[in-house]
Design a protein around this nucleic acid. Structure first.
Lengths: 195, 195
DNA sequence: CGCAAAAAACCGACCGCTCGGTATGTTAGC
DNA sequence: GCTAACATACCGAGCGGTCGGTTTTTTGCG
């Protein structure tokens, strides 16, 4: 019976270390020691340190895009869809808080092509969200006096910032915070709209 | 007539390079070449690469704290004070966009004591803002159904995120964006409050 | 099943190189 | 001639990555 795959052990240790010490300040040696394996073993599964880093991005990008696709696929009214999407992405980001820290802090450490792929996939995710806002605007439920880019940035900024302030062992659960932030965003998004 | 001080030239080049390539990926050699000086000159003015980085933090922290103190010192009504403070910090952050990029991305590259000082001073800045919200709540002009920590994070996230999306050569001026974001924040902050 | 051959997993000493930092000049103004 | 302001040559720690080899697991065949 297989314990835990070396691949996963290494990635887990890497996420933890990269999040606390930073990618550049973490040597491959430290990662493999934390994972309880050797350098040889790690380089058997990963071609480079960069590979290891990209794996973290890959995982988060795939997960969140899948979630978003599923929520949009439900075919609910646009306001409910957006609310569900917002709550979900915040909850997920809290669940993967160390990954988020690395994600937003270490993008420029990726090799150029990897970096481009992350930007591409992130943009697609962003565009899917913007499309929701656009729909809501044309249906008259969201305000139109502020550029969509600003509205979108206003929300994504919350995701970005989560790993900087949220404390999982604090008094508030992830779900609570997710709903509070979503509430704030939707309140500002619907201000001035006559219902 | 003194051209531009070597100190400033070096810091300027450093900010630019740290923002685009990242602190860890920028060698001291590259910095001094971009600044048009030599390594010897740089190490005459800075004790270490860390010193150079800290200088960027020092500058931004001092500037923003001074601005905030000044605005609070005007003694306006709390809602107006908060609005002015929000607009100002966004405008300033846009003016110092590369500094902001470095600020939020490279904090963990600072030496532990420097890191602690930045956290300390940042916390003071944060607390000054929270005090404004608290005042507004006790005066009944801001909502009280969401924890202050969440409200505050919701705004600071916008500052954080600015360098990730705002394009100074785009169609919107810094002031416009500053007012739009502030509007969104204040709208969400005053939702549900009977005026 | 038995067992050898092949493949996958893993080890760890080692290497080339980069980079922050220093030591030792050299120049110019007072 | 003394100090501040640089320039140049150099150092060595630490890093990512490699590579020859060993152990463990899987496969194939009688």
């Amino acid at each position: 019976m297989k314990d835990f795959s070396v691949r996963d052990q290494v990635q887990q240790a890497a996420v933890e270390l990269f999040a606390t010490k930073g990618y550049a300040n973490t040597s491959v040696q430290e990662v493999v020691e934390a994972a309880g394996v050797t350098k040889g073993a790690m380089y058997h599964y990963y071609r480079s340190k960069d590979d290891l880093l990209f794996g973290i991005y890959e995982r988060l990008l795939t997960l969140q895009q899948e979630h978003l696709d599923e929520i949009i696929g439900r075919g609910m009214p646009v306001a409910e869809t957006l609310r569900a999407a917002c709550v979900d992405v915040i909850e997920t980001s809290i669940e993967y808080l160390p990954e988020g820290t690395v994600f937003f802090r270490s993008m420029h450490m990726l090799s150029p092509d990897r970096h481009d792929e992350v930007v591409r996939r992130r943009r697609r995710y962003n565009d899917d969200f913007v499309a929701l806002i656009e729909r809501g605007q044309s249906e008259g439920v969201f305000r139109t006096d502020i550029p969509r880019a600003v509205l979108m940035a206003h929300f994504f900024s919350d995701i970005h910032y989560l790993s900087q302030w949220y404390n999982p062992s604090g008094p508030e659960s992830g779900t609570e915070v997710a709903e509070q932030i979503t509430e704030l965003f939707l309140d500002s998004l619907t201000t001035g709209v006559t219902s």
